[in-house]
Design a protein around this nucleic acid. Structure first.
Lengths: 143, 143
DNA sequence: ACTTGACCTGTGTTCATGACACAGGTTTAT
DNA sequence: ATAAACCTGTGTCATGAACACAGGTCAAGT
């Protein structure tokens, strides 16, 4: 099985398979006649596992730790339970960041509907952006 | 004004100031005796503008376009109105991604509370992750 | 046997946005 | 003068792949 075959079978791009190979999580054998990498059952199982873990928000490095724990025959489950808590916190944060950014953006768009375009001056580059920031700061300060 | 002074005054790190200098948005003069960069009023205004725009979700490249439009004396406002719509779409997407990931994560954590740790086998690396993925796929398929 | 063209491969590079490392210069205190 | 503390610019690193590209392979046609 070569890189494109396994990629198609699992439903990812060849570049993704190459990436996980490059970082050492997949260890295909090498066809000596042409140097092509040969992926087998073990790699298929590993790749599926990697994708499942990615779906759950584990980082590529997390997965490396999980895999190497398992390789040593130890249960990776305790580590997995710890790591997902950390990743959940990060996800909450990126969720909150997205919410707040979205609020700022929609608020700006609405405000800008009432405002004209204006050429830049020595003081202002884009009055929409600069004035909105003042407004937002004022709101934030409770003014 | 040197890099740390302007950075402290505006409330960012010196590395951030260096970054915007490197990409050419800030053009400090150079002290010929020691090679240090000298930031002045113009750079302070520019830096503030850059940060305001970043707060609104514009990418660094967006800001480059906005700045170069303004430099040519043209109003950047129409561009700004277009760009923020595009960035808003991306923000919505990252918001949705965060929500869905969070759901998967919390659902996994809850499920895992009922499950024991287990050592890896030839078939399984981490039964928590692999079994959760089956479950999730089944739910998704309406089973 | 040979050639053409289509497809495939591995390796190196790029993306975004700063943070970090580091060798050397500068300022302050002694 | 000297030592310590601090500052500077430049170069590299980080994520998780996607992309570029030179060359290899393989089937079809001649």
């Amino acid at each position: 099985m070569r890189v494109n075959q396994i990629a198609n079978e699992i439903g990812v791009t060849a570049d993704t398979v190459r990436f996980y190979t490059r970082v050492g999580y997949l260890n295909p054998s090498k066809n000596p006649t042409n140097g092509y990498k040969e992926y087998g059952d073990k790699e298929r199982r590993l790749l599926r596992f990697i994708l499942s873990a990615r779906q759950l928000g584990f980082s590529v490095e997390d997965i490396g730790q999980i895999l190497s724990t398992a390789e040593r025959g130890r249960s990776p489950c305790p580590l997995v339970r710890v790591l997902i808590q950390q990743r959940l916190i990060e996800t909450q944060k990126s969720f909150q960041d997205s919410v707040q950014l979205r609020e700022r953006m929609t608020s700006a768009i609405e405000t800008w509907n009432q405002k004209p375009d204006r050429a830049p001056t020595g003081e202002m580059i884009c009055h929409l952006i600069e004035e909105f920031d003042h407004t937002a700061a004022a709101v934030y300060n409770g003014a």
